[in-house]
Computed example of a mutant assay.
Amino acid sequence: MTRDLLAARDLAAELAVRAGQLQIDRRDTLRMGAPKAHANDVVSDVDIASERLIVDGIHAAWPADAMQAEEGHGRDGTSGWSWIIDPLDGTRNYISRTGPWSVCIALYEGDRPRMAVVHDPAAGETFTAVDGGGAFLNHQPISVSAGPPLAEALIGISFQPNVKTKTRVGALLHDLLPLCGDIRRIPAALNLVYQAAGRLDGGLALDTNLWDIAAGALIAREAGVTLGGRSGDHTTELTIGAAPALWPELAEKARAAA
Rank of each mutant, 00 (worst) to 15 (best):
E109P: 01
T167I: 08
I183G: 03
G170N: 14
R31G: 00
L246G: 02
I219M: 05
A220I: 08
P121Q: 04
L204H: 02
R114H: 10
Y194S: 03
D4W: 03
A19R: 06
I219P: 04
P244F: 03
A13E: 14
D4P: 08
V117F: 09
R112T: 15
P178W: 07
A245P: 11
D4G: 05
I240W: 00
R184V: 10
L137W: 03
I157K: 06
C180E: 06
L88E: 10
K36C: 05
L177E: 14
S50M: 01
P87I: 10
V163A: 15
I48W: 11
A116K: 02
I58H: 04
D10L: 13
G80R: 05
I85L: 05
H234N: 08
D131S: 07
N162Q: 09
Q23D: 07
V17L: 08
P148T: 02
A123E: 12
S50K: 03
L30Y: 14
I24E: 09
A243V: 02
G198N: 04
E71R: 03
P35A: 04
A197G: 15
D56G: 06
A215D: 13
K36T: 12
G110D: 04
A122Y: 09
A188P: 00
D4L: 00
A34L: 04
K36Y: 07
F159P: 05
H59G: 02
L177A: 15
R114I: 06
A196I: 09
T165Q: 05
R3T: 11
W247V: 07
G156Q: 00
L227A: 11
L15F: 00
L176V: 13
R97K: 13
I105S: 03
F127E: 07
L173N: 09
Q160T: 15
I183S: 04
S145L: 10
A254F: 00
E71I: 00
T235K: 11
A189D: 01
D182N: 14
A220S: 11
L218T: 13
H119E: 13
A217N: 07
K166I: 10
I155T: 08
A151F: 01
L218Q: 13
V163Y: 14
A197K: 13
V118A: 05
A8S: 07
N93E: 12
D233R: 15
I186V: 15
A151N: 11
P121H: 08
A66P: 07
R185H: 12
